[in-house]
């Protein structure tokens, strides 16, 4: 098949079924946005369950959230905001052809994501020590509400699903970092950073909502 747009030189990552690199870029981005819609609705199921239970048992949420540590939740929020910033910086570096900065920014993002997960790990294990397990394994006497287990089920499910997304994001960041070190990205071709960045920002946005919904209930 002849390449129909031979007038411009293409990156080696150009796929032949597109007319030009611009179309490929815009297509990838729209595809990612559509995928993000599916992510919103997937988390949406859990958020809907949260809303239903919170409106049924407002006391439960006020009482149970005292077991969550607002300080570390806040730190994690700041960590994720920082990682969002560095992803955006990585994209900017790619657009300006500053190849070294791409790798640096991606590296910082990866590190911040790891910090997030470590903090998350200590939060969870601390609760496990208290006997706050999800669902039927819940074994904690500190909250005088018969449905306390449901609150923590929601907590573990929502932060857990979010955590899985962070882990996937870390895998993607690692892959991008590896590729950037192999000099795959420049101002002509940075689609993977752009769309992974979109994914990462959405993970950040979800945490922006999870934080007040779980940690900031008085």
């Amino acid at each position: 098949m002849a390449d129909h747009s031979s007038s411009t030189t293409h990156s080696r990552f150009f796929q032949h079924h597109f007319v030009d690199a611009e179309q490929q870029f815009q297509t990838a981005k729209m595809g990612m946005w559509i995928f993000l819609v599916t992510e919103i609705l997937m988390f949406g199921g859990l958020f809907a369950a949260y809303i239903v239970f919170r409106l049924w048992y407002p006391d439960l949420f006020t009482q149970a959230s005292t077991e969550l540590n607002t300080f570390w939740g806040g730190v994690n929020t700041v960590v994720l905001i920082g990682s969002s910033l560095t992803v955006a910086m990585a994209i900017k570096s790619a657009q300006l052809n500053q190849k070294k900065n791409i790798a640096i920014n991606l590296g910082i993002t990866l590190a911040l994501a790891a910090v997030f997960m470590v903090i998350k790990y200590f939060e969870w294990t601390h609760k496990f020590e208290l006997g706050i397990f999800p669902g039927q394994f819940y074994d904690f006497g500190g909250i005088a509400h018969e449905k306390a287990n449901v609150f923590f089920s929601l907590y573990y499910l929502m932060t857990g699903l979010h955590g899985i997304h962070v882990l996937i994001g870390m895998g993607l960041m690692g892959w991008l970092l590896w590729r950037s070190l192999k000099n795959h990205f420049d101002s002509e071709y940075y689609t993977p950073i752009e769309i992974t960045g979109l994914y990462w920002h959405l993970v950040d946005i979800i945490w922006i909502f999870l934080f007040p919904l779980f940690y900031l209930i008085e």
């Binding site: 599916t38 992510e39 919103i40 609705l41 997937m42 988390f43 949406g44 199921g45 859990l46 369950a49 239970f53 999800p134 669902g135 039927q136 394994f137 018969e146 449905k147 287990n149 449901v150 089920s153 929601l154 499910l157 699903l161």
Partner: peptide, 28 residues
């Protein structure tokens, strides 16, 4: 629509594994 099915079925699975008590009345 499909993502909502995905999370719902995941919740059913978790209900069976962990007894999370979102859907099962016995667990609240």
């Amino acid at each position: 629509a499909t993502p909502v099915l995905a999370i719902t079925l995941a919740l059913v699975g978790m209900e069976r594994i962990l007894g999370i008590g979102i859907f099962d009345p016995a667990m609240g």
